[in-house]
């Protein structure tokens, strides 16, 4: 193996940047969709209707017991059958992430709501607020504050997990890098570069989160 050759990276920056754009897009859409699915599931789980709550629980437990790769395979196979025509890897992967991550977000939202002390609801009700008002003005603001660090952490995990789109050949950052590595025959430089980029981005995101947590904590 000859010495470390950085030019193989600089020459392929446009390729890698295109991959990174797809990774970021996929992450943003997956987080947004996952949160929507998660909130719906959490409300179902906390609802007084037994069947709805049980169904949501089954959904969450099932998705949380399988690997993401399997979910990606599932949806890559299922989506074309359900829609009746091929949709390409991007939409399959996106749908897989939304449904899969929805199960994780559901647990985050649920424990955020349940983490608010019961006395807070009593206090709000005892001043005459209605149930909806108590949830809206007293419980939810606290729940969101409880949840938000976990939501951000989960989003960082999703950013990392989008690299698993590799298994169906979606040209995200990692897959683009993989193509370059094979074409140029320089896996060492390329994979090290990929690792460093992921590390720096995730490290920065986590540092930002810690900074904002310190600011919020009173």
């Amino acid at each position: 193996m000859s010495s470390f050759d950085l030019s193989v990276i600089t020459q392929n920056i446009p390729w890698l940047w295109a991959g990174m754009q797809l990774t970021i897009l996929l992450t943003l859409l997956a987080v947004a969709g996952g949160i929507i699915v998660g909130v719906i599931l959490a409300l179902c789980r906390l609802s007084p209707w037994w069947a709805l709550s049980a169904a949501a629980k089954l959904y969450v437990n099932l998705f949380r017991s399988i690997p993401l790769v399997l979910a990606v395979f599932w949806f890559y196979f299922l989506v074309p059958i359900v829609t009746g025509h091929p949709v390409g890897p991007f939409y399959s992967v996106l749908i897989a992430f939304v449904f899969f991550e929805g199960a994780y977000f559901a647990e985050i939202v649920r424990s955020g709501i349940q983490g608010v002390r019961r006395g807070q609801l009593s206090a709000a009700l005892s001043t005459g607020l209605s149930h909806v008002q108590a949830l809206r003005y007293v419980v939810m603001p606290q729940a969101i504050r409880n949840m938000y660090p976990v939501l951000v952490t989960r989003s960082i995990i999703i950013f990392q997990d989008t690299s698993l789109a590799f298994v169906v050949g979606l040209t995200d950052f990692l897959t683009s890098a993989n193509i370059v590595a094979n074409r140029e025959g320089r896996p060492v430089e390329i994979y090290c570069f990929v690792a460093v980029v992921y590390f720096l981005l995730c490290y920065a995101a986590e540092a930002g989160l810690n900074l904002s947590k310190r600011r919020v904590a009173r």
Binding site: S122, A123, L125, G128
Partner: peptide
């Protein structure tokens, strides 16, 4: 809710909204 708005209550653990 109307009734509660006319009855004040103070709790052992304060329960101020943080």
């Amino acid at each position: 809710y109307k009734l509660r708005s006319r009855v004040g209550m103070v709790f052992q653990s304060f329960e101020l909204y943080p």
